[in-house]
């Protein structure tokens, strides 16, 4: 499948994947993330069940301490 990840095309050799699988595959190591699939927020508790499909527009923004 092909998705847009942070406005860039990404290919994966499977039909669907969970948000958790995407984070592991792309080595997102930050803990605090705002994740949206097609503009819809995916909360932290839902990373294992939220499914990403071909053509989805996914954004992952990592939040860091300091202010």
């Amino acid at each position: 499948m092909q998705i847009m990840l942070n406005n860039r095309k990404e290919e994966f050799d499977r039909g669907t994947m969970t948000v958790r699988e995407l984070l592991d595959e792309k080595n997102f190591t930050f803990k605090m993330l705002i994740i949206k699939i097609n503009g819809q927020l995916v909360k932290k508790d839902d990373y294992y069940k939220a499914v990403i499909k071909d053509g989805d527009d996914v954004s992952v923004i990592h939040l860091i301490s300091g202010g």
């Binding site: 930050f30 803990k31 605090m32 993330l33 705002i34 927020l41 909360k43 932290k44 939040l63 860091i64 301490s65 300091g66 202010g67």
Partner: peptide
């Protein structure tokens, strides 16, 4: 949003979106 901790930043982002 003008918090220090990333966990609080995420908390308010989720709260406002939801």
């Amino acid at each position: 949003e003008a918090f220090d901790l990333a966990a609080m930043k995420l908390m308010i982002a989720e709260t406002v979106l939801e």
